[in-house]
Simulated scan of single mutants.
Amino acid sequence: MTIQNGDSRKLYQQVAGAVAAAIASGRYPVGTRLPSERDLAEEFGVSRPTVREAMIALEIRGLVEARHGSGIYVMEGAEAGGPPLDLDIGAFELTEARRLFEGEACALAATVITDEELAELEVILGDMVGENSLATSIGEQADRRFHVTIARATRNTAIVMVVETLWDIRYRSPLCAAMLSRAREVGVRPLIEDHREILNALSRRDPKAARDVMRAHLGRVIDGLLTATEIDALDRARLDAEARRQDIARRTAV
């Protein structure tokens, strides 16, 4: 199975489509364990997060099933799965975009933010602490308000629209929603201390520090998603955390 350079679909869609076709052709019969995440990444020449998104997309379609501690297996009736659905944007791709846009937005906000807006962020941070006890997406409302409030502090309507759109994608994209739901199930919540550091940098009116702490925060969000969406438990026994995350280190260094 290979990825076609001329294919305009997202990489995870190409991987999902190729695996679905292999299932339909009988290469992977019902009950068969699929190759490991690492093996699939090597076979397709893509990152492991891309493979992970593809497997979650296939789970959403009911073609495969993740069995903790064992791997990914082809489900009964998978042969009738049909063509891959366009599940839109995954959580890795979304968070990478947020890291770029919100890092710069935070730096700009640090130069013009008012005392009133800083006080509002302090209140929102308190709300976030309370919402962290919730296991549903309701617990993300304060998190969204915190980030959008920073965008509004830039006094740039276009920046606000971009940040709001990126947050809205979290709920509109079935793939992203599924990945974030899985993260919540294993206890991934908004990082309160990270948000406190962001607020402190904004309070100092330090644009460089504000940019750095926002980018570091969203880098840790990616780390949390990697852990939460781990699909091959055998890899956890073989690889340490640094090795599991090296496939995105180059991109997050941008």
Rank of each mutant, 00 (worst) to 15 (best):
A253R: 14
R33D: 05
L87F: 08
M179A: 09
W167A: 14
P49K: 03
N200T: 11
L218I: 11
H217E: 05
V51K: 02
V186F: 00
A241L: 14
P83S: 11
D127F: 01
G82E: 05
L87Y: 07
I138T: 00
I159K: 03
A233V: 05
I113F: 01
M128H: 02
D168L: 10
R250T: 11
E185I: 05
D86T: 14
G130S: 08
K10S: 14
S8C: 04
S8E: 06
Y12R: 13
L134W: 00
G6W: 13
Q246K: 04
H217W: 04
L125N: 03
Q141S: 02
V163E: 14
V19D: 00
A135S: 05
D39E: 14
D115P: 04
S137Q: 09
T229A: 03
Q4I: 11
G130N: 06
S47C: 04
R33Q: 13
V163N: 11
F146S: 03
R27Q: 15
A57H: 05
M55P: 06
A24L: 07
R9W: 11
Q246R: 08
G31I: 05
L125R: 07
P190E: 11
L34H: 02
R144V: 15
Q14V: 08
G69M: 01
P207Q: 10
Q141R: 01
A183C: 10
E93G: 07
D115F: 04
R67H: 00
A66Q: 03
I124K: 00
T227P: 00
T32N: 03
E117A: 12
R251P: 02
R38A: 08
A110D: 14
R182P: 03
I89N: 04
H68I: 10
R61C: 05
V188E: 13
T252D: 01
R238A: 14
M75N: 07
E242H: 10
P84Q: 06
V160D: 11
A216R: 08
A16H: 03
L226S: 09
F146E: 00
D115Y: 02
A153K: 04
I192A: 07
L100D: 07
I248T: 14
R184T: 05
